[in-house]
Design a protein around this nucleic acid. Structure first.
Lengths: 342, 342
DNA sequence: TTGTAGGCGTTATCAG
DNA sequence: CTGATAACGCCTACAA
């Protein structure tokens, strides 16, 4: 912490400008001079102060990441990893802003605490209103979205089509003869109902649309998203007259343990009940769950790269990307056995 | 980005010092002046530049987090969340340094790219050599460890006792009559064998010690840590003459899906085979796995708080903390049925 | 309670 | 290829 660029300059017998150049533009410095400088720097344990160069660069080299959940979530942790894999090497720090309750949300958009202090904003997994979008844009920096809507509120965006994916999945089930299908989901948080679209809602819609298209009465179970999600689901399931032939889960983190527990109660998956998930967690692959694949790491890396291009004023092709949704067919789904379908 | 402190000062008809104080020490500014300044600031969309104030503060307000795995790992993601919950509000950014291969490791410790650019270093889940420790200390800043050894190489540390925990777990199994127990683990990476202690090794040691204490020949299966860990484990398991009565897994991420798969093959857990894990993932609770609990979020938050105290030169009690290891007994373990033990 | 002025460490510009 | 110098935006003694 002690030695600064001037100490190195003195020791190397050059000017501070030369020291700076040695680090930032080595090619502009004679090899001999460069070595002198590097030696001096090593002896003094010197390296360029990031704070100082960031400061003088005018850019903040900081990216705000807006999330509406914990950062340790499967999606968020992987997305962060993808973002960081691109932003970090480019010299950017990523900092989370947790937009969880409607209060924090309002406070955030009113005060924009990150104003003037980040070079770009990444909005992940939640939708923003037009008003919030324009508020964000008042900062005059790129706003990019990951699984966030509406797309045109963002400078760049990347998303999967949750509705379509779940629609596809439901059709898969229906095509195998299932008519008694239950969709299990977590309810939207109250502060988000109505105005905003979340992945969860889209998935629910996709399920319902597929059912309605085939004249099936969609059966949806909403369970609290607490520490006992599987118990909650089982309770509601057992509360019915009979078990459905297929269970469509909003996400793998529910489907995976549910499979295990159903097995423990003697239900064979998929012989007795088909189960599907969404996300494609590692554990989903391990247990052979049929699910919708998405790769948040890759999404993060992709949008980060495009954001970087935008910041560097390079041409960025497509501004808005909707990834193909892909179902991974494994062995938690099978045709219905006893076909008593009307 | 446009307006700086001077613009605000002009508009508010005060000096820049007053503007600065209004933001940093509001109590030192007359209420009336303060309002004038805040109004001007709002009109100009001004807020203090973090880069500038960090720069001039002399501190970097950055924390380096050294990990030897991906940041999206269950442990790392949660630990990060804990660290961030304390560091972020205090104005610190956390940046990952991935120390993965022996090459990156060597390069890191030779060049110390973070030198002079972070206020503290957090080493997580891997051990460092004396040499590396002293190298780190040459930076003249606190080095803190989370599940890292040797403790006295760090200014502060917090750990669980992996060896003890697995020893306890194994004894639990033995106490229930199990003598045919298999321990399934991932091998250490080659570059770490010998010199360094990892959680994984400690757990293995704990298992073996417990076995030896009871005259049981410890049976250890090492499987590659690739995309098919459960298949790998099952293959090795089926390769034996017979199934063990108990399976001790190095971590939940293996144990949880293994339970599911074993069930699919008709083994009842725990009636036919007892299975134990380590970590206490959310999914472990959902499926009722008996496991060792650890809370990386809480560990991260705790060490972050103590690090902050250290940075602020407040007294920090205990420097080195080893958390009590706690087993969560659920229903994946049971006494052996057909006791043919010799 | 408020203003003045020096300095934080680096980089870019421009001259040599 | 190298050196001198003026920013960059803010904070904090110190003075008023």
């Amino acid at each position: 912490m002690r030695n600064n660029i001037e100490d190195v300059a003195k020791r190397a017998g050059v000017s501070i400008a030369t020291v700076s150049r040695t680090f930032k533009h080595p090619d502009l410095v004679a090899a001999k001079t460069r070595n002198k400088v590097m030696d001096a720097a090593n002896e003094l344990d010197f390296s360029i102060s990031r704070s100082a160069s960031v400061f003088q660069a005018g850019r903040t080299y900081r990216i705000a990441l807006l999330i509406n959940d914990r950062s340790s979530t499967w999606f968020n942790a992987h997305m962060y990893e993808g973002l960081d894999s691109v932003f970090h090497p480019a010299g950017y720090d990523i900092t989370f802003s947790h937009i969880v309750t409607s209060d924090t949300r309002r406070a955030f958009f009113e005060n924009l605490p990150i104003r003037r202090n980040v070079d770009a904003v990444v909005v992940a997994s939640f939708d923003i209103s037009r008003q919030e979008a324009s508020r964000l844009h008042s900062m005059g920096i790129p706003i990019v979205g990951i699984n966030a809507m509406p797309q045109d509120a963002f400078s760049l965006s990347i998303s999967i089509d949750d509705e379509k994916a779940m629609h596809l999945m439901t059709r898969h089930l229906i095509a195998m003869g299932h008519r008694d299908i239950v969709f299990i989901a977590f309810p939207s948080k109250p502060e988000n109902v109505g105005t905003l679209r979340f992945s969860a809602n889209e998935r629910s819609k996709g399920f319902q649309r597929a059912c309605e298209e085939r004249g099936i009465d969609p059966s949806v179970i909403l369970i609290p998203d607490d520490e006992n999600i599987v118990d909650n689901a089982l309770t509601r399931l057992f509360d019915r007259d009979h078990m459905p032939t297929a269970i469509c889960c909003q996400q793998d983190s529910l489907a995976v343990p549910l499979v295990t527990r159903l097995q423990q109660f003697g239900y064979r998956i998929p012989e007795d009940i088909s189960v599907t998930g969404f996300d494609d967690l590692d554990s989903a692959r391990q247990i052979g769950l049929t699910t919708v694949h998405q790769d948040p790491t890759q999404m993060g890396a992709a949008i980060a790269q495009r954001t970087l291009d935008l910041l560097d004023k390079k041409p960025v092709n497509p501004s808005h990307e909707t990834l193909d949704t892909q179902i991974v067919f494994r062995h938690s789904t099978a045709p219905v056995k006893d076909v008593t379908t009307s």
